[in-house]
Design a protein around this nucleic acid. Structure first.
Length: 222
DNA sequence: TGTCGCGAACACATTGTTTC
DNA sequence: GAAACAATGTGTTCGCGACA
């Protein structure tokens, strides 16, 4: 099949002339033009592949965004608050907001090789056809930000990878509330209210833990 | 046993209002 | 004018029953 596709795609008669058939020439990689209206093999193949990749990207991001029904605690699906009525809710803990970009990059790379490759094609510079990593704005970091935004865009509850830690960090930096709102709209971070709710949850948990330790120490006569 | 569809519950983002 | 708080709309998640 690989040989057949190559032969079709690279055959000189599969390419429409830009002057004689401009509409056919423009149909290459088109995401919308009906395939049965494309008479030449090369643009038809590229149009078909474009839609195939687009649909698959939609499917893969959706899969990453969905919450797994059962299994281990999911860092991606953590809640800032809970009132106890919902079962199996993972409420935020301090460990959830500790992360490194390197860890997240490795996580995304292992979890979805296709999406990592796809975003690398968008973000990474190349030299002689090979991907190179720049010192300033290294593309894996940008890929992590993009994939995290894609996931949050598809599911607002799947914000634990980067959105929630970033929201808390913005609060800690005393970022202006307008900055928080813009970052939230871009899908980079959770909203100001969610970040505050998460911090309240975290500090309440720590306070209760401290009170318990003090009571235990008093009981032991220390 | 797994999938689908539905309605209710829930957590969240957004926007408006109040307070300092 | 900015931050804090409250109200409201949105859309995901959950639980359940029906069905294959």
């Amino acid at each position: 099949m690989a040989d057949v596709i190559e032969l079709f795609y690279n055959h000189h008669k599969s390419r429409p002339s830009k002057k004689k058939a401009p509409d056919q020439f423009a149909a290459a990689f088109s995401p919308t033009k009906p395939l049965h209206e494309i008479r030449y093999a090369r643009p038809c193949l590229s149009g078909w592949a474009t839609r195939l990749v687009g649909d698959h990207a939609y499917f893969r991001v959706g899969k990453m965004a969905r919450k797994k029904r059962a299994g281990e605690r999911s860092r991606r699906h953590i809640r800032a608050t809970k009132n106890g009525r919902a079962k199996n809710t993972n409420v935020v803990e301090w460990e959830d907001v500790e992360f490194t970009m390197e860890d997240l990059a490795n996580l995304y790379k292992e979890e979805d090789e296709f999406l990592w490759y796809f975003t690398e094609c968008c973000a990474a510079p190349r030299k002689k056809g090979k991907v190179v990593v720049k010192k300033t704005r290294p593309h894996p970091v940008i890929q992590v930000g993009a994939i995290s935004s894609f996931i949050t865009s598809r599911n607002q509850y799947a914000s634990g990878d980067l959105g929630l830690p970033l929201g808390i960090w913005l609060f800690a930096c005393q970022a202006h509330v307008d900055v928080e709102r813009v970052f939230c709209r871009f899908g980079y971070s959770v909203s100001d209210s969610t970040a505050r709710a998460a911090l309240n949850t975290l500090t309440d948990a720590s306070l209760n833990d401290l009170k318990k330790q003090v009571r235990d120490a008093i009981d032991r006569g220390e």
